[in-house]
Design a protein around this nucleic acid. Structure first.
Lengths: 349, 349
DNA sequence: CTGAAAGCGCTTACAG
DNA sequence: CTGAAAGCGCTTACAG
């Protein structure tokens, strides 16, 4: 199928890649000692180590991951297990994981899944065992699935769960702390003078829905406000649900002057609904989203929203998994932050 | 790092997965014959084959990909090499690839890259050789890079290039035929009575820019029109460039009554510019995009655009790579199609 | 701190 | 159509 190049490869490689035996022979040691260097064992004299490392660098040697995997009983593949349908989230997460494993010799294997499928757990188990995965990173909402977590423990597979709040032992968790973002959204709206504030939450079976709402309520409380029950409706994190929920909220008398949507997709639906009802944003209605995906700056008006540093979170998650954790960077970088754009303004009172 | 489950696994697996030796012993054949069944060799008597297959099914045996890779000299990993920054494209492509390799035993490894990096080729080579990849799928614009194609030939790695037009032997190409989409956009606008039509192309170093424009010109020609030189500007496939190019086009006298943007991102920029200039869409200006990414239906007005069946294209690409090609489905499914929404209307003459 | 032996689970020649 | 031998490139016990 592929085009073949029948000439032997030119240059130093002489037609085949060097193996651990080549390194051992040239360095004058056993292959076991080379193996120790590859695996960063402390039981190698430093002059021996340096000699071996020089030969490795000289020949451009890289150990064969398949051979290591076979002997070690575990591959050097990291799985990303996800069911979040938002492309921007998935891509940012992937970039973060790749950041964190760069130069480590690990590779990223993607595995979208469906928690509602009858074969969900069997598929996940098959994926991990077949490839002898080194470990997996789970993102919301599959990261919130306790059946999946139990499976991973049962088959003794390393894992890190990314979620809005802790659900497991600390070593298995990276928390996005969405509550902080909800709080910032509330303070922003309250400080603009809004008092009739609506909220479109995500679906109740998503932890992030609760965290974002709880944070929002905490922020309002700091400004001596409470969320009014009839101004709170449950959406599905989709554009269409945001649209429908906004129609509902904006039909009430008096209607809210601000809406905090649980994510950007629903906020886009709110803008659409406002337009159909001839309610101008931000003059008559302020709108805040959550995520800061690309769409937020493409909408009109551009969307005030809460940014979650997904890529950074992905980097942290995989570093945890492969034992590379640095944590040295500014902890602020991993917290949600409010991004103020044009969809929010002073309350129209 | 991970939680350990010290009890031996329960059930039929008795604590370890079956190997080819288990199958051979139970079926009363040599492991070589089991290997033949695994690899679909025709040189096995059908009753022998059936007996072996029954044992495989009974034990839930799956051959170890790492061991096969080591012996075979090639892994069962497919690489997706991409540099398209649009998340929706990447995710749809990934889904298509996964569709095409479902149940095949192959796994998908993602590899974003940067053609402008000085280490671009070395990184790609390292990625492929280190993992002994079975093959790679390249998407635009890295699929258009002849240095990359030459490298793949040199190191004898199977590959399929996804691009808007043929650039290689047919066996290495999946064409998206963007020209057809450009043509549909032109016919649509001409049939609405537009005669002053602007075009914001993608960057000249992308093949799709030319194909989309060429198709557009062909469509206009069918309606006895030609593209006016001063109504054609070059963008960069970005929102910001679409915005700037639209300001340019809309400042001309007389200004165009329709703009065909080379992609949805730039079309979003056109809508933004029209709003700033108080030009109403579609009453005074019709806008057509290309891609039909999620943003197209979130904008206001919703965007008329050309949909490329990216997921289907991905499926075809990987099926080609692993020799599973079916081609049975409706060939229409893999062509660009115009999706008419609210951003286009009769010309205001 | 270093090494010789055995083995991980497969496939490729080579025979028959 | 089927099999015994050797080997893919590493790592894990086990010695010393």
């Amino acid at each position: 199928m592929s085009t073949h190049n029948s000439k032997p490869s030119s240059g130093r490689d002489h037609g085949r890649r060097p193996t651990i035996n080549d390194i051992a022979r040239i360095a004058g040691v056993s292959k076991k000692t080379v193996s120790r260097v590859i695996n960063a064992s402390p039981f190698v004299r430093s002059d021996t180590r340096e000699r071996i490392e020089a030969v490795i660098a000289d020949l451009g040697y890289a150990p064969d991951p398949q051979a290591r995997a076979l002997a070690y009983g575990r591959s050097f593949l990291i799985g990303l297990v996800y069911d979040n349908p938002n492309p921007q989230y998935v891509v940012n997460m992937q970039l973060g994981l790749l950041d964190g494993m760069k130069g480590s010799g690990f590779e990223l294997v993607v595995h979208p899944c469906d928690r509602n499928s009858p074969t969900f757990l069997a598929d996940l188990k098959g994926f991990i065992e077949r490839q002898r995965l080194f470990g997996v990173v789970l993102t919301p909402s599959v990261s919130e699935d306790e059946r999946a977590a139990k499976l991973l423990n049962d088959i003794d597979c390393s894992y890190v769960r990314v979620a809005s709040v802790s659900l497991d032992d600390p070593e298995h968790m990276i928390e996005t702390r969405d509550r902080i973002g909800g709080r910032e959204a509330a303070v922003h709206l309250a400080d603009l003078g809004h008092t009739r504030i609506g909220h479109i939450s995500g679906p109740v079976n998503f932890r992030s829905s609760h965290e974002r709402r709880r944070g929002f309520e905490e922020g309002l409380a700091e400004r001596s406000q409470v969320l009014t029950g009839r101004y709170v409706v449950e959406g599905a994190y989709t554009f269409e649900s945001g649209f429908q929920c906004a129609l509902n909220l904006l039909a009430q008398q008096p209607r809210p002057t601000a809406i905090f949507a649980g994510n950007d997709e629903m906020a886009a639906g709110v803008l659409q609904a406002a337009r159909e009802l001839n309610i101008s944003v931000p003059e008559e209605l302020s709108v805040v989203g959550f995520d800061d995906f690309q769409i937020a700056s493409r909408l009109w008006p551009t969307l005030t929203t809460v940014r979650t540093p997904t890529r950074e979170i992905g980097r942290l998650a995989v570093e945890r998994l492969i034992g590379r954790e640095t944590e040295a960077r500014d902890p602020q970088d991993r917290l949600p932050t409010l991004i103020v754009r044009k969809s929010t303004a002073q309350a129209p009172y």
